[in-house]
Design a protein around this nucleic acid. Structure first.
Lengths: 253, 253
DNA sequence: CGAAGGGTTGAGGTAGATCAACAAGGGTGG
DNA sequence: CCACCCTTGTTGATCTACCTCAACCCTTCG
């Protein structure tokens, strides 16, 4: 639970060689947009697993697009209870909320080594003026986030522990394949601790462990080496009563 | 839980007489924007309490701004378990998600008689092209929604039943005062059933009732006449460990 | 007058919490 | 090299917050 030190910025890779563009789940840029983004991008941020990227209450001058790796977004109560509200994967915007609303209302911590594309909070409106299509994309991304949060609420509010875990792993597995975080293969590997699972689903650590073992016994997944391999994404989704709304090519910044 | 019939559209009130403009919690429009909105507005929708405004899975051609009254947004599982994810009050956008993502991923039902300002889904991008400031506002509104959902997730995931209810009533009370739904006075009146409270907080109806009575016994509120009067918003917020992030003048469409 | 919606209360059951102990790395410092 | 600690996972025992079931009340409405 202890956030480590931040990484530091390094020289930027130019946008036309953006790794995300090679992934067909992302929609392509037009020349003018690419041109704009090249100037819009302020640099790159590289952090280690466990690093704090944003802190609740802070006024961060930047917001980011995830280029590689993944992170989680969370909030805490005074007494330390923690709730993970969502995960950020390649192509996702991080810290947009703070840019619009002022202070961050949640924190973000890396779950793996990450590279993030750095933007200046104060330049956001410039983007809205110069490129309405990109502005529209930003809103699209925010709407998608909202949609995921709705589903997470349904999960925590109304699904049983077994369903919750099945949902979460199917959800993360599916997203990580789509975002190119994972290669599509027999088993999807998800590198997180059981504490993360518990804090996402509003469960205790012990009960999370016991429920996870049930899923292992059913051969839906295996746990080990600080994470799990999911064998049967469909089986998990079905168990959770969740339909993966397959997205076609989606925008990113 | 049974949705009733839709209302029907009526002649529109012109935007310069928009009731929301009289409320100081909303930021004012400039002349050019007002002009644009006048044309952007397609009409008005009036519905009764209990009416379905949007249905999960549907491709609604419109999205809306709430002018008066309030509603709740919800999702359901196949077996009927229902989760209310948030509420919509004057100034809030409804159905934006569907406009961007395609089909609605949630339903919306009126909690009181309502009037909504009707916009055409297909015109949204026109707004982005013509008025970057308004586009920015749309994203601002979406971000605020996201922020509320984060807090709701924290509530359901990590707060106890007593804290949850305290939070919910403080949250709704505070929002309804800010949006002009309620007059600021000794007691804030919230017109919803205990079933709504239960479905928002992931609790059973019976336990919701018992917990509510505890709050009544503590003189924080009274329940009756199909809703409750909240006497002590601060006390509830404190009990829940929640800080009301007071918003200054905010945008709306 | 009966039916339906909303609220209230008690009794008993269970999913999931808490407490406690232990095992298996991995890192660090002597 | 060992000794130690810290993180992560595992499992059993016990407890309790919340659920389900089952009444019953009151009000509204056809």
């Amino acid at each position: 639970m202890a956030p480590a030190t931040n990484g530091h910025e390094t020289a930027a890779v130019s946008c036309e060689h953006c790794p995300l563009r090679r992934n067909e789940t992302f929609r392509s840029f037009r020349e003018a947009e690419l041109d704009f983004m090249r100037r819009f991008k302020q640099g790159e941020l590289k952090v280690n697993r466990g690093a704090s990227i944003l802190m609740e209450g802070a006024q961060n001058p930047h917001f980011y697009t995830v280029l590689s790796g993944w992170a989680f977004r969370y909030k805490t109560l005074e007494d330390g209870r923690r709730q993970i509200v969502n995960f950020a994967m390649p192509g996702d915007l991080v810290g947009l909320q703070g840019s619009l609303l002022g202070a961050m209302q949640h924190s973000v911590e890396a779950l793996s080594p990450m590279t993030l594309c750095v933007f200046d909070r104060n330049e956001l409106f410039t983007l809205y003026q110069a490129h309405p299509e990109l502005a529209y994309d930003v809103t699209w991304i925010a709407s998608r986030e909202e949609c995921m949060l709705d589903e997470n609420l349904l999960t925590i509010g109304r699904r049983s522990a077994l369903e919750r875990i099945a949902y979460l792993l199917a959800f993360i597995g599916s997203r990580s394949i789509a975002s190119g975080l994972m290669k599509r293969s027999n088993a999807v590997t998800i590198g997180m601790t059981q504490q993360h699972v518990a804090d996402t689903l509003g469960l205790s650590l012990v009960h999370t462990n016991k429920t996870l073992r049930k899923l292992v016994r059913r051969d839906l997944l295996r746990w080990g080496d600080g994470g799990c391999q999911v064998f049967d994404l469909k089986g998990l989704a079905e168990l959770a009563g969740w339909e993966d709304t397959a997205t076609e090519a989606r925008p990113f910044l």
